[in-house]
């Protein structure tokens, strides 16, 4: 009797890292949060007869300064991804160096946003009022709601980055264990992604 060889396929199962999945679920909820703000603004804008026109908006909002801020946030995203790449290849010094660059860029973003707020408030654009006569004050409200909440997210990211940076400097991350860097990176890239959308909605359109 001839022996037959039976090859059975082994079922495989991929187990997702629970912390990473949790961060993605959190980011999913953040999509809902920021989308609510953005679409509320769009609805108010479409239904308002006195929304400031493009030229009037650009007169009040410093688009060039904010464009620089956008560039800074993009470069900070590059720095974070290079930090992750460095630790994935066991380069701890590279990790610390790129995280430090990200910290500087994140703090610069916040500084420029604070400067912008100061200038706008001096010009009369407060949460409930615009300096342009006859225009809808909800323009100012939605502007501060969207950019303010985003700024708070950047601030939260910078504070988290401080913790990650200290841990990196103490050598607590390695080629095999660097979840903290990756999870922080996801959050930071998401904040960058949101700003890309906000920049267009708030400053350009």
């Amino acid at each position: 009797m001839q022996a037959s060889t039976t090859v059975t396929a082994q079922p495989t199962r991929t187990v997702l890292p629970s912390r990473k999945l949790a961060v993605w679920l959190f980011l999913g909820s953040e999509v809902l949060f920021f989308s609510s703000l953005i679409f509320s603004t769009i609805t108010l804008r479409l239904t308002s007869p006195n929304w400031p026109s493009y030229d009037r908006i650009t007169h009040v909002l410093a688009v060039n300064v904010t464009a620089v801020n956008t560039f800074i946030l993009i470069v900070s995203s590059v720095a974070v991804v290079l930090a992750l790449h460095a630790i994935e290849h066991g380069d701890q010094r590279g990790l610390v160096r790129w995280l430090f660059v990200t910290l500087i860029l994140g703090a610069t973003f916040l500084g420029i946003q604070a400067y912008e707020y100061r200038k706008l408030i001096d010009e009369g654009l407060t949460v409930a009022a615009t300096p342009i006569a006859g225009t809808d004050p909800l323009f100012a409200t939605t502007f501060y709601a969207m950019t303010g909440f985003h700024g708070l997210h950047v601030l939260g990211g910078v504070l988290t980055l401080l913790i990650v940076l200290v841990k990196a400097a103490r050598g607590l991350y390695s080629q095999d264990h660097h979840d903290g860097v990756e999870l922080f990176g996801l959050y930071w890239h998401f904040v960058d992604l949101v700003w890309i959308i906000l920049f267009t909605i708030v400053y350009l359109i």
């Binding site: 993605w24 999913g28 909820s29 999509v31 989308s35």
Partner: peptide, 15 residues
């Protein structure tokens, strides 16, 4: 993993 993409797609679908 596509599961993460699914989370984002679900959020976008909901909104």
């Amino acid at each position: 993993s596509r599961a993460y993409l699914g989370v984002m797609a679900l959020a976008i679908f909901l909104i």
